[in-house]
Amino acid sequence: MDETGKELVLALYDYQEKSPREVTMKKGDILTLLNSTNKDSWKVEVKITVNGKTYERQGFVPAAYVKKL
């Protein structure tokens, strides 16, 4: 869990989004878990840094590609 009590997951593999509802992640990324009720895909939040500014983006990733921490 992070400092706000949200559950975290670790990306086990790289994943490139295939639709606007998904998010891209790299192996080793730590993501905030938002919903894990679907056995196939979990909703997560990723933090992306562009030019020194951090943005948050929500979307789905394959459940088999992440592990709860």
Rank of each mutant, 00 (worst) to 15 (best):
Met25Leu: 10
Thr54Ser: 10
Lys68Val: 12
Lys27Glu: 05
Tyr65Met: 15
Thr37Arg: 09
Ala64Arg: 13
Glu45His: 07
Lys6Asp: 08
Ala11Tyr: 04
Val44Asp: 00
Gly59Cys: 07
Tyr65Asp: 04
Lys6Tyr: 14
Gly52Glu: 06
Thr32Trp: 11
Leu8Gln: 09
Lys67Val: 14
Phe60Ser: 03
Glu22Leu: 03
Tyr15Thr: 01
Met25Lys: 02
Thr37Tyr: 09
Ala11Asn: 02
Arg21Asp: 15
Ser41Thr: 12
Asn51Trp: 05
Tyr65Val: 09
Gly5Trp: 12
Leu33Trp: 02
Met1Glu: 13
Thr24Leu: 02
Tyr65Gly: 07
Glu7Tyr: 11
Thr37Ala: 11
Pro20Cys: 11
Leu10Cys: 13
Pro20Met: 08
Thr32Arg: 14
Arg57Leu: 09
Asn38Cys: 10
Tyr55Cys: 10
Asp2Thr: 12
Glu45Asn: 07
Val44Pro: 00
Thr4Glu: 12
Tyr65Ala: 14
Asn38Gln: 09
Lys43Cys: 15
Ile48Val: 13
Val66Trp: 02
Lys43Pro: 00
Phe60Gln: 02
Lys67Ala: 10
Lys53Phe: 13
Gln58Cys: 08
Lys47Leu: 12
Gly5Val: 13
Asn51Lys: 08
Lys53Pro: 02
Ala11Val: 10
Lys6Val: 14
Arg57Pro: 01
Ser36Ala: 11
Val9His: 03
Asp2Lys: 14
Glu7Ala: 10
Lys43Trp: 15
Thr4Gly: 13
Asp14Asn: 07
Leu69Pro: 01
Leu12Gly: 01
Ala64Phe: 09
Thr49His: 10
Glu56Tyr: 15
Glu56Phe: 15
Thr24Trp: 03
Leu31Met: 12
Glu45Lys: 11
Ala63Met: 02
Thr24Arg: 05
Leu31Gln: 01
Leu10Arg: 08
Val46Asn: 04
Lys47Met: 10
Lys53Met: 13
Leu31Asp: 00
Ser41Gly: 05
Glu3Gly: 14
Thr49Lys: 09
Lys18Asp: 06
Asn35Ser: 12
Leu12Arg: 03
Gly5His: 14
Trp42His: 01
Asp14Ala: 05
Tyr65Glu: 04
Val61Ser: 01
Lys27Phe: 05
Ser19Asn: 14
Ala11Thr: 05
Lys39His: 11
Lys43Met: 15
Thr49Glu: 10
Asp40Pro: 02
Thr37Lys: 10
Gly59Pro: 00
Thr24Gly: 08
Ala64Gly: 10
Lys68Cys: 11
Ile30Lys: 04
Leu12Gln: 03
Leu10Gly: 01
Glu17His: 08
Val44Met: 00
Leu10Phe: 08
Arg21Cys: 15
Gln58Tyr: 06
Glu45Gln: 13
